[in-house]
Every structure is written in C-alpha cells, then in structure tokens.
Amino acid sequence: MQSLTISLALVAILLVVTLQVHLSQAINCTLPLTKVGEKFYFVESKAKKSWYDANAYCISNGLQLANVESEYKFNELADFLSTMGYRSDWVWIGAIGRQGSWLQFGPARRLPYANWYISQPDNLNSENCMNLYRISEKWYMNDYSCRTALSYICEIDDSRTYIN
C-alpha cells in the first residue's frame, strides 16, 4: 500500500512538471493562442505571408505550421476555423511536397492523412505547399504556390516537446 502511495505521488509530480513545461512553452509564445483538443493554435488572417514566411514566423515564435494527423484532427481544425469566422479564406498549414509525395512538418514525415479536394493535388504551376480552403460548408486540402500570401495557422501540440 505504501509503495502504491509513493508511485501515485511520483506520477502526480511528473504530471505537474510535464504540465508546467507545456504551459511554459505556451506562455513563452507571446501570440494569442487558443486551445483546441490537445493543441494550441494561433491564426493569422491580417498579415498574410508566403508559406515559407508563415513557416518561419511560426518557428520564430516557438510554434510550427499546423499539422493534420488524422480525420478527427482535420475535422477539429476545420470546425475551429469555421467558428473563428473563416468562410472562404485559404489558410497555410504545415505540409510541403509534390504530387504523390507530401511531407508533414514537426517532425518531417509522410503525410498521415489527407482530405484533398477533387483532382488535387495537381501541382499546377509548381504548387508545392499545402493549404486548407472552404467550399460551401466543407473544408479541403489543396496544393498551392508557396509564394502566394495567405492566412496561416500555427500550432503548439500539448503532447509534443519543441526544440528551437
């Protein structure tokens, strides 16, 4: 019984330390963050940037361009953007590549989930960066020219450790 109490106390201490580390990461970021599920998001719609500049901005603030790991996370992010008032805006997220070969950032790996719009990605005019966009009430993924200035969404994943 005593060893169980000690084990529970150690687990509690580890949880508090882990929570403090994650909260300090969010607090170190001076951008206004919104918690959605396990992640904290920052959405920029006024100072639009190229994919490269948006990615650099996220990183310089201790974040990364948002990732979509599953259908559930995609729907969670789409619902969040919809509740933020995004109707038909195009929003950069953290994937880059070429038709058939896409990588997700943080850490770089093959894209685990995709909800492409019909006939996308098409790599038309060297479209090598991923964005989300809304048609009617549904959100989709699309490949787009990386140099185009769009809104973007940064994230900090509460379950991941970041190293700048």
Score class of each variant (00 low, 15 high):
Met1Asn: 07
Met1His: 03
Gln2Leu: 11
Gln2Cys: 04
Ser3Ile: 05
Ser7Lys: 11
Ser7Arg: 08
Ala9Asp: 02
Ala9Cys: 03
Leu10Cys: 05
Val11Leu: 15
Ala12Leu: 15
Ala12Asp: 03
Leu14Arg: 00
Leu15Phe: 13
Leu15Met: 12
Val16Ile: 15
Thr18Trp: 15
Gln20Lys: 00
Leu23Cys: 00
Ser24Pro: 00
Ala26Lys: 14
Ile27His: 11
Asn28His: 07
Cys29Met: 03
Thr30His: 14
Leu31Glu: 12
Pro32Tyr: 09
Thr34Glu: 12
Lys35Ser: 08
Gly37Asn: 11
Lys39His: 09
Phe42Tyr: 15
Val43Asp: 08
Ala47Ile: 08
Lys48Cys: 03
Lys48Glu: 14
Lys48Gln: 15
Lys49Glu: 14
Lys49Pro: 01
Ser50Tyr: 07
Ser50Asn: 09
Trp51Lys: 01
Trp51Ser: 02
Tyr52Gly: 01
Tyr52Gln: 07
Tyr52Asp: 12
Asp53His: 11
Ala54Pro: 03
Ala56Met: 04
Ala56Tyr: 07
Cys58Arg: 10
Ile59Glu: 13
Ile59Tyr: 13
Ser60Gln: 07
Asn61Glu: 11
Asn61Asp: 02
Asn61Phe: 06
Leu63Asp: 12
Gln64Lys: 13
Gln64Thr: 13
Leu65Ala: 04
Ala66Pro: 07
Ala66Lys: 10
Asn67Glu: 05
Val68Ser: 00
Val68Arg: 07
Glu69Tyr: 14
Ser70Thr: 06
Ser70Ile: 04
Glu71Lys: 02
Tyr72Ser: 06
Leu77Tyr: 10
Leu77Gly: 10
Leu77Pro: 10
Ala78Ile: 08
Ala78Glu: 11
Ala78Asp: 09
Phe80Ile: 05
Phe80Gln: 09
Leu81Val: 08
Thr83Lys: 14
Thr83Ile: 14
Gly85Asp: 03
Ser88Thr: 09
Ser88Cys: 04
Trp92Tyr: 04
Trp92Glu: 09
Trp92Cys: 01
Gly94Asn: 05
Ala95Ile: 09
Ala95Phe: 13
Ala95Gly: 01
Arg98Phe: 11
Arg98Pro: 00
Arg98Tyr: 10
Gln99Met: 10
Gly100Ala: 04
Phe105Ile: 13
Pro107Ser: 05
Ala108Ser: 12
Arg109Tyr: 06
Arg110Phe: 12
Arg110Thr: 14
Pro112Tyr: 01
Ala114Glu: 15
Trp116Tyr: 05
Tyr117Ile: 08
Ile118Gln: 06
Ser119Asn: 09
Gln120Met: 05
Pro121His: 04
Pro121Trp: 05
Asp122Gly: 02
Asn123Phe: 13
Leu124Thr: 07
Asn128Trp: 09
Cys129Asp: 04
Asn131Phe: 08
Tyr133Val: 10
Arg134Lys: 15
Ile135Glu: 07
Trp139Leu: 02
Tyr140Val: 05
Tyr140Arg: 00
Met141Val: 10
Met141Pro: 06
Asn142Pro: 00
Asn142Asp: 07
Asp143Gln: 07
Ser145Thr: 11
Ser145Ala: 15
Arg147Tyr: 06
Arg147Lys: 11
Thr148Lys: 13
Leu150Glu: 11
Ser151Phe: 03
Ser151Gly: 13
Tyr152Ile: 00
Tyr152Cys: 00
Ile153Gln: 03
Cys154Ile: 09
Ile156Pro: 01
Asp158Glu: 07
Asp158Ala: 04
Arg160Gln: 14
Thr161Ile: 12
Thr161Lys: 14
Tyr162Pro: 08
Ile163Lys: 11
